[in-house]
């Protein structure tokens, strides 16, 4: 979505009622964030809405981006939020070979997730792999993509294919057009 460098458009203050609605929506979509919501969006602070090209709106707090949204699609977290609260999102993991493609903005393909280095929610997962969840995710879920051998997430997007289907088919596109490390949104300077 943000392959090219983008220039932020008009910045406006968010109405306090809209701000409350955003808070509720965030909690609804990411229930695990609920305990931290006051830390991400403090009640007293004034959120800003920055318009980005292609009808994307970005909610920021001062100069830190928090969430972005394309038209009325899902509210997606900015990767800096994901890095701060890595345990509050549904996660999957890609193998090492796929990292460089994801970081250059390619569509995430299923083999990167099903290969030995990748992780999908697995009911038999044990130990460390439990953090990737046990229940299969439906298409349309917002997931954070981590990478093999890395601590931080590198991609946020919406699943195009359910994870149970991925395990069966093992090919095709998994996610498309999200927000990845080093893209235009990441490099956005909100001065």
């Amino acid at each position: 979505m943000f392959k090219k460098d983008i220039t932020p458009g008009a910045k406006s203050k968010v109405k306090s009622s809209a701000q409350r609605a955003i808070r509720n929506k965030v909690v609804e979509e990411y229930p695990l964030l609920a305990p931290h919501i006051d830390e991400i969006i403090p009640k007293k602070e004034q959120l800003d809405l920055v318009k980005l090209p292609d009808r994307v709106s970005l909610y920021t707090l001062g100069s830190t981006p928090l969430f972005f949204q394309h038209m009325d699609d899902n509210l997606l977290p900015h990767l800096s939020v994901v890095h701060k609260f890595p345990d509050c999102f549904s996660r999957i993991r890609i193998d090492r070979g796929a990292i460089r493609f994801v970081l250059s903005g390619a569509t995430l393909m299923v083999p990167g997730l099903t290969s030995p280095g990748g992780r999908l929610p697995d009911p038999e997962a044990e130990g460390e792999d439990e953090r990737y969840g046990k229940e299969d995710l439906e298409p349309g879920t917002v997931v954070v993509v981590e990478a093999e051998g890395k601590e931080h997430a590198c991609f946020v997007g919406v699943l195009k294919m359910g994870t149970s289907e991925m395990k069966k088919v093992k090919k095709g596109q998994a996610m498309e057009g999200g927000h990845y490390l080093g893209d235009g949104l990441w490099g956005l300077n909100l001065g």
Partner: peptide, 16 residues
């Protein structure tokens, strides 16, 4: 370093 990221959710935001 992957292991350190797992575990129960921290009350505080992680410093990255």
């Amino acid at each position: 370093d992957v292991a350190t990221a797992a575990g129960p959710p921290e009350p505080q935001a992680k410093q990255v």
